[in-house]
């Protein structure tokens, strides 16, 4: 195989440019881990505050899905919610696009143990 030597003194080689770009991308991707741990440190007080609020108000759920009463507290709703029309029915509220049937529903033994 014949290898043509790079142009003398002229433009930077394409491979050098690409590798420089790739190194930047690698550094950026690697920095995700450092950045996330720094962001976590900054957010520690917020997490603590949320934990304190949960403890003080005796909360059980996140206030994420507030569109219907049975999506507001998924951990407190009965076993046929949020898919309350039918265990496998598609939820007509948009939160149904993010939630799936809770695992507890599939474990009949748990139902027997705690919900008599």
């Amino acid at each position: 195989m014949i290898f043509i030597p790079p142009a003398a003194g002229g433009d930077m080689r394409k491979s050098t440019i690409y590798f420089s770009f790739l190194i930047v991308l690698f550094l950026l991707s690697g920095s995700i881990f450092f950045l996330s741990s720094a962001q976590r440190r900054n957010a520690a007080s917020d997490l603590e505050e949320m934990g304190r609020t949960v403890k003080e108000l005796e909360l059980t759920d996140l206030s994420l899905f507030m569109e219907a009463r049975y999506t507001r507290h998924p951990s407190q709703s009965d076993l046929q919610t949020a898919f309350q029309d039918h265990p496998m029915a598609m939820e007509h509220f948009p939160s149904g696009s993010l939630m799936k049937v809770p695992e507890v529903m599939r474990e009949s033994s748990r139902y027997e143990t705690l919900d008599r």
């Binding site: 976590r40 957010a43 917020d46 948009p94």
Partner: peptide, 19 residues
């Protein structure tokens, strides 16, 4: 959009990055 759904109220929050 999917999280907000039909709710009028919605929390403004920035997630803590756990990877």
């Amino acid at each position: 959009g999917a999280l907000k759904g039909w709710s009028v109220l919605y929390p403004s929050f920035r997630l803590t990055p756990f990877i």
